[in-house]
Amino acid sequence: MISGNENLLYIAEAYPQLISEFEKQGLGNYFKSENLNKIGKFIKLNTVLSSHKINPVLFIESLNKQLENQTDQNVLVETDLGSLDFSAMLPCGLRNPFKEYCESYFASYPTLFSELKMLIEGNVNHELSYYPLLDSIEDVDELPDVIMASDINNFFHKPFVERFIEKGAFEAYQPYHLNPYLEKVEYSDPLGYYTMFTANMLVMVVDKKQLGDRKMPERWSDLLAPEFENSIIMRGEDDFFCNAVLLPFYKDHGMEAIGKLAKNIRKGMHPAEMVKAANKKDGGEAAVYIMPWFFSKRLKNDEVEVVWPTDGAIASPVFLLVKKGKAEEKDALLNFLMSKETGELLRDRFFPSTHPDCNNNHLHDEVKWLGWDFLRNHDVGKLKEDIRENFMQVWNKK
């Protein structure tokens, strides 16, 4: 019988005959193999139903009635329902090297890490991802003991903050004072809940052919000028555009700036697609691309100039959450993640290291960080939705 506390992978393996019922409710994507392997191990049925506003009592009752009517009761499959020890959802430029680095290190110390259950992925798709489910999770046991995540996501939203952060379910693991490169903008969490790991630094890339006789942008506010109408590409697609970019524009210039920026955005692209477009020798698709510093290093077009804004590259956070009371148990993992060697890997991939002994001199001085006062003085989830609505109202009129 199903109670709702089972994870999705368990249900898929134990009751494959019920998957069609989930498909009828529009939940079929969760049961595709690639998604089961990513999030099915530690997402409970009740969480999925709540996030999709499906009455869990009625739906689970209907599932159990089907099971009662089946003559074959041997479908139950023994499976491990243990939660992950470590999950990481990383910026695209970091995922593969970090995963290989972790796997190599863990294999070298089998005694310490042979039982470690981990998942390392790129920052998952916004349409079907782990992040929206966080608003419905009520039990901290549904979460891995150590979580690494990217961007201003649902870990900063009011439901998660009130349910877990403010109640002390997590505590920062910061064995040293942060490297001054990021700490000069007060990057570390003053309340000691989030462990700041690195940042995805966002810069401008300017196609000088497409720019023409317009003035080279120097500050982020320059991108709001009318002469850049329909001339900028940023990360996004369909009805989603990058919050790491939109939130700083709102903070610095208010909601009016969101409409101005929407007029100037030509389209949304993945950063890898931006690189391909900007590298075209016969001219790219936009005058300005907003992309991570890592991806800008792939540019090979002499007509393209990387601009580190004078008011700072935008620092999109990459952080850790460690369950309270788990730091000692996971000390081998945490010491590895926060080590100088890991910091050097980050630095070499053009992500700033927070380790004090790592040299970040290859990065320009100026950093733009939203700040903890902003994150804690706003209902971040609601603000993101308000910004998206204002942006799309203008965008859809184009």
Score class of each variant (00 low, 15 high):
residue 82 G to S: 13
residue 82 G to F: 08
residue 82 G to L: 09
residue 83 S to Q: 11
residue 83 S to A: 12
residue 83 S to T: 10
residue 83 S to H: 09
residue 83 S to D: 10
residue 85 D to W: 03
residue 85 D to H: 12
residue 85 D to L: 06
residue 86 F to A: 00
residue 86 F to T: 00
residue 87 S to G: 03
residue 87 S to R: 02
residue 87 S to K: 01
residue 88 A to N: 00
residue 88 A to M: 01
residue 88 A to R: 00
residue 89 M to F: 13
residue 89 M to D: 06
residue 89 M to A: 13
residue 90 L to M: 11
residue 90 L to F: 08
residue 90 L to D: 05
residue 91 P to M: 04
residue 91 P to H: 02
residue 91 P to S: 04
residue 92 C to W: 08
residue 92 C to F: 12
residue 92 C to L: 14
residue 93 G to I: 00
residue 93 G to S: 03
residue 93 G to F: 00
residue 93 G to E: 00
residue 94 L to M: 13
residue 94 L to F: 09
residue 94 L to A: 09
residue 96 N to V: 15
residue 96 N to G: 14
residue 96 N to D: 15
residue 97 P to S: 07
residue 97 P to K: 04
residue 97 P to G: 06
residue 97 P to I: 02
residue 97 P to R: 03
residue 98 F to V: 06
residue 98 F to D: 06
residue 99 K to F: 12
residue 100 E to G: 10
residue 100 E to C: 08
residue 100 E to T: 10
residue 101 Y to L: 05
residue 101 Y to I: 01
residue 102 C to S: 13
residue 102 C to K: 03
residue 102 C to I: 06
residue 103 E to I: 06
residue 103 E to L: 07
residue 103 E to A: 08
residue 104 S to C: 08
residue 104 S to F: 08
residue 105 Y to N: 06
residue 107 A to D: 14
residue 108 S to R: 14
residue 108 S to Q: 14
residue 108 S to L: 15
residue 109 Y to E: 15
residue 109 Y to P: 14
residue 110 P to L: 06
residue 110 P to I: 03
residue 112 L to Y: 10
residue 112 L to D: 13
residue 112 L to P: 05
residue 113 F to N: 04
residue 113 F to V: 02
residue 113 F to R: 03
residue 113 F to Q: 03
residue 114 S to N: 13
residue 114 S to F: 07
residue 115 E to S: 15
residue 115 E to I: 12
residue 116 L to N: 05
residue 117 K to T: 08
residue 117 K to D: 09
residue 118 M to G: 14
residue 119 L to N: 12
residue 119 L to T: 08
residue 120 I to K: 02
residue 120 I to S: 01
residue 120 I to C: 01
residue 121 E to G: 09
residue 121 E to F: 08
residue 121 E to N: 11
residue 121 E to L: 13
residue 121 E to Y: 13
residue 122 G to I: 04
residue 122 G to P: 06
residue 123 N to G: 11
residue 123 N to Y: 14
residue 123 N to S: 12
residue 124 V to A: 11
residue 124 V to Y: 10
residue 124 V to S: 14
residue 124 V to N: 12
residue 125 N to L: 07
residue 126 H to R: 11
residue 127 E to W: 10
residue 127 E to R: 13
residue 127 E to K: 13
residue 127 E to T: 13
residue 128 L to C: 00
residue 128 L to G: 03
residue 129 S to C: 11
residue 130 Y to P: 03
residue 130 Y to T: 06
residue 130 Y to I: 05
residue 131 Y to I: 04
residue 131 Y to C: 07
residue 132 P to V: 03
residue 133 L to T: 06
residue 133 L to M: 11
residue 133 L to R: 05
residue 133 L to H: 07
residue 134 L to E: 00
residue 134 L to T: 01
residue 134 L to K: 01
residue 134 L to M: 06
residue 135 D to F: 00
residue 135 D to P: 02
residue 135 D to V: 01
residue 136 S to V: 10
residue 136 S to G: 15
residue 136 S to L: 12
residue 137 I to Y: 00
residue 138 E to A: 12
residue 138 E to Y: 09
residue 138 E to W: 08
residue 139 D to W: 07
residue 139 D to Q: 09
residue 140 V to D: 07
residue 140 V to M: 09
residue 140 V to A: 12
residue 140 V to G: 08
residue 142 E to T: 05
residue 142 E to N: 06
residue 142 E to Y: 04
residue 142 E to W: 04
residue 142 E to P: 05
residue 143 L to I: 01
residue 144 P to R: 03
residue 144 P to K: 05
residue 145 D to Q: 12
residue 145 D to C: 12
residue 145 D to F: 10
residue 147 I to K: 02
residue 147 I to T: 04
residue 148 M to I: 00
